[in-house]
C-alpha cells in the first residue's frame, strides 16, 4: 500500500482546483481574511501537511541515505 502514498499528492490539486468554485466568496471572514483568500492559504498549509505524510509513508525515505 505504501508504494501508492504518492497518490496523496493529488489532494492539494483537488482542493485548489476542483473545489475552488465553492470557495469563491467573501463571507464568512476567517482569521480576518475573506473566505477565498483563507481557502488559498488553508491549502498551502494542507499541502505541507500532505507532503509530510507522504514523506513519512514513502518507503524510499527509510534507512540511511545512499549518496
Amino acid at each position: 500500500m505504501r508504494k501508492y502514498a504518492q497518490l496523496l499528492l493529488l489532494i492539494p490539486f483537488i482542493g485548489l482546483c476542483v473545489l475552488l468554485p465553492l470557495a469563491n466568496r467573501i463571507e464568512p471572514y476567517i482569521l480576518g481574511m475573506p473566505f477565498l483568500l483563507f481557502w488559498v492559504v488553508l491549502w498551502m498549509i494542507l499541502s505541507s501537511v500532505t507532503l509530510l505524510i507522504v514523506y513519512k509513508l514513502d518507503p524510499e525515505n527509510e534507512g540511511s541515505e545512499v549518496e
Binding site: P12, L36, V40, S47
Partner: peptide, 23 residues
Amino acid sequence: GSAAYYVPAYICLAYVLSYWIIP
C-alpha cells in the same frame, strides 16, 4: 485583486508536484 492569488497557488502546487518529479 484576487487574481493575484494565482502566484502562491501555483508555486505551492509546484512544490507538491516536485516531490514526484524532482527525484
